[in-house]
Design a protein around this nucleic acid. Structure first.
Lengths: 342, 342
DNA sequence: CTGTTAGCGCCTTCAT
DNA sequence: ATGAAGGCGCTAACAG
């Protein structure tokens, strides 16, 4: 019952050859309509299933695409993956998930593993910008496997990317803080070797300049994306002789940490202190004191990455199609930075 | 440069045969140490990579396992997937993700697609309990592909599952509400054709009985897992002539909706009304009015499912190893049900 | 210890 | 319109 049945079994039953069966199944025009019917019926009655592995071996295409992310249990990455899967599903691609856990070595392994597995493309968010993985990326390109970066990208010739305009994101959120009357605006940044964090920072800086507010280096703190890190960071800032009156955090989690700490110190938000985050994590909306944040439209980012992949796949041209898609960030203004209505 | 190089290329270069190369690469004891070295060196210098597809075709094993979930962008499922990936990674398995979007038809397609793709196992959370997909499940079993349910399971002979004790979860959370002095405890349930929701409900009911509190059918409302659904549900309850003074919701999102609505009506939580949820979504902890919820240890559930798979894979015995792992739920008591400290 | 051969399941020229 | 034969890359008897 569970025996694998092949086109040879069908051929034998019909007293024809496997080649004919193959052609019939693939709807080749060279096959007589009558035999085509015969084959189709036999195939379904015998419960025939094409062996994708054999097909993949023969064609060199696996119909799998690999997705590499730092971790899958974050709302942002999970949403991107959802978008990718939804977009690729109708095209018959399966999505293979890899996690780096922010470890460049894992990233390296994942890249080689996916290539070994003969994926038809790799969509990924870069973990770090060491160049120790350059060989792995080169390997991907040499194998002519489409490589697409989303969100966290890396400058490599011939590689497409889908990102948001992080500079603008940083800019508009900072402007909002300024509009609320804040003048001593601090910034929690991530690892600035990653472009996304660098650009958010630059947007922040530019907004200050454009408003005639001097940039203060002491107001910029590099912190991890966690509640704990946010608490630590705000504590450092509050020790300054001129403590800030607002924070733009590159991470919603760090923003939350700051808020919790401020509250413990009975500092009124948003009246005395405004806080804004980045990523629009679900909880920012749900909080009683909802948190202003910049949305990165992860679902759309995933879908767009998938579309870029679909455009590139199969194109054997050595002329690399390098496509840079930049999505617009969207500021969600909430209570944590709304002095007007509070 | 990007040409695929095979064991034949290595063989040719070394004037030996491909079989020898294969054996050397696989560290066969029959190969002279010296030639083994030669082969290894040649392989690395020629940048040889094994073609997994050919291997898979030959062995019938793909080293891929399929994971089917309703959606990937929920903290619970994402965490389970993370657990699965982490556990299987050291064993060389890749994880293929499929989403059903709660659509039985998609579930059916996903099952067949994964079998077509020759996955070595399927780990899944069932979408619905129609029996329209019975053929698809049977197909999996006939192909002798290990099938493991996590969280949402389905009673099928020979299929293992990893779940939590939902009955107990419903029981302990209801007990907590009773301990806080609540006597008119309502329940938001999910689709009770799914065992998890049925069991949470039964636990709730039992807790009431054990405390001598009469069960009131009108207090049980079936609602979707969304903020909006929670609002609708609470509004219905508040119309009753004896409105409840507490809710145990099978969904954190619905619990949140209820809380928002209660707050709009200036009903004091937890003093006048207690609310508890289920799943321990991140936001339940982050809220200023943190929400009591039952943790399902999704990471552990994922790892455990993976381990059960690893135990079963390769066992060709027709004696099916049916293993039922039940994890303990953990109640996280927070402000929404804590009258003592507030 | 190494070479020869066959085959995993499918597709695709080349004949007929 | 169909059959025959070779090969995708690798492994596993079976020889020697």
């Amino acid at each position: 019952m569970s025996e694998k049945i092949t086109i040879y079994d069908i051929a034998k039953k019909l007293n024809i050859t496997a080649a004919t069966v193959s052609r019939a199944l693939n709807n080749s025009p060279k096959i007589k309509e009558s035999t085509k019917q015969l084959v189709l019926e036999a195939a379904s009655s015998m419960n025939y299933k094409q062996n994708k592995l054999a097909l993949a071996l023969k064609s060199g295409r696996s119909n799998n695409i690999g997705v590499i992310v730092p971790r899958v249990d974050s709302n942002f990455f999970a949403s991107v993956i959802r978008g990718i899967e939804e977009e690729l599903y109708p095209h018959g691609y399966q999505v293979i998930i890899c996690q780096t856990h922010e470890n460049p070595k894992r990233e390296n392994e994942n890249l080689y593993t996916l290539i070994d597995a003969q994926v038809d493309g790799i969509l990924m968010s870069v973990t770090a910008v060491t160049n120790e993985n350059d060989d792995a990326f080169q390997n991907v390109l040499e194998k002519n496997v489409p490589l697409i970066f989303f969100d966290r990208s890396k400058q490599i010739n011939g590689v497409s990317s889908v990102t948001i305009n992080d500079f603008k994101g940083g800019y508009i959120v900072t402007k909002q803080l300024i509009n609320q009357g804040c003048r001593n605006i601090a910034h929690f940044s991530g690892d600035q070797s990653l472009e996304i964090f660098k650009n958010r920072f630059l947007g922040y800086k530019q907004a200050l300049l454009d408003s005639g507010i001097p940039f203060n280096e002491k107001y910029v703190i590099q912190s991890k994306s966690s509640v704990e890190a946010g608490k630590n960071a705000i504590n450092i800032l509050l020790e300054l002789e001129t403590p800030p009156d607002a924070i733009f955090s590159s991470s919603d989690f760090a923003a939350l940490g700051a808020i919790q700490e401020l509250r413990d110190r009975n500092i009124n938000i948003p009246q005395e202190f405004c806080v804004a985050g980045f990523s629009n994590e679900p909880f920012t909306k749900f909080m009683e004191l909802s948190i202003t944040s910049v949305d990165q439209s992860p679902l759309e980012m995933g879908k767009m990455s998938a579309r870029v992949f679909l455009e590139q796949v199969g194109k054997t041209d050595t002329i690399k199609i390098e496509k840079k898609v930049v999505l617009a960030p969207e500021l969600h203004i909430r209570k944590s930075t709304s002095r007007i209505n509070s």
